[in-house]
Amino acid sequence: MSVNITDYNSKNIPTWCPGCGNFAVHTALKKALSDLNISPSEAFMSFDIGCNGNGADKINIYGFKGLHGRSIPLAIGAHLANRKFTVIADIGDGGCFHEGLDHLIHAIRSNYNITILIHNNENFALTTGQATVTTKKNKPMYGLPFGRIERDLNISEFILNLKPTFFAKAYSQDPLQLSEILKKSINHNGCSVIEIMQLCPTYNKEFTHEWATENIKKIDSIEGYNSNSLESAREILKDTTKIYTGIVYEETETKSFYDSLENRKNMKTELVDEVKKYDIKKLLEKF
């Protein structure tokens, strides 16, 4: 039986602001999952706290809305327990690069087979517009009339420096491209990171659809671009005059975390299938 995109619809009405990028991101997600014929009961999503997390009960899927900054390790735990599930961790630029940055670093280097969706709307929106690491320097923000004084962090470069096995950038108002990227990331056996440049018409008025349309360049359109080359990836990420969307970098040489576990090599079952009495008699021989 084929999966329909509407299978993912929840009866709850979204609470995002009019024009919020999250509407299209959810549509892209539902499209990618249903295109891959993955049913809502075959996928798990963890949600962070923030506007992305307010979408947790707006999609019909096995889900867990947890704590701020922690959606990545929560997703990893779910993935390791049952790899039959497609696992996606949803998080914003605030939760990912402030509260829980350690998790991103170790998830990428461990190469768990999950997809991390970073909603980059360049601010902490749900708490009404505080500065994040991606907010433009000196832009007046909540509590900061003269803006953030600390230096910028180019989060795309940061992510690439961790050598993710899959890294893509997308734009919230291009759900078709995002859903194609999502499908590739779900099929990638390793840690996939997707940074979504997301509209926030309430707190990031400078980043408009018009501006984005003019300044976005699709990686697919770059002649000779090699998504297996870190060099190519570095080149385009350095160019801050444009936003490049598409698959920035991918490689399939590095094994996923689970596939590297010696003691799980010959196990046919998942951890969730194995909860039963275990006879410790043999282990007692060493005492």
């Binding site: 798990f44 963890s46 867990f64 947890g66 704590l67 922690r70 390790p73 929560l74 997703a75 990893i76 735990g77 779910a78 993935h79 390791l80 327990a81 049952n82 599930f85 350690d102 998790h103 670093i105 170790h106 576990l261 003691n263 799980r264 196990m267 998942e270 951890l271 969730v272 194995e274 909860v275 275990y278 282990l283």
Partner: peptide, 26 residues
């Protein structure tokens, strides 16, 4: 035993992983 043993990057990660795994039913 075949138990998956993971040294996490910190205690918050460890407990969050456990929450994820327990939710899934192991």
């Amino acid at each position: 035993t075949g138990i998956l043993v993971k040294q996490a990057e910190n205690e918050i990660t460890a407990v969050q992983m456990a929450l994820g795994s327990m939710y899934m039913g192991t």
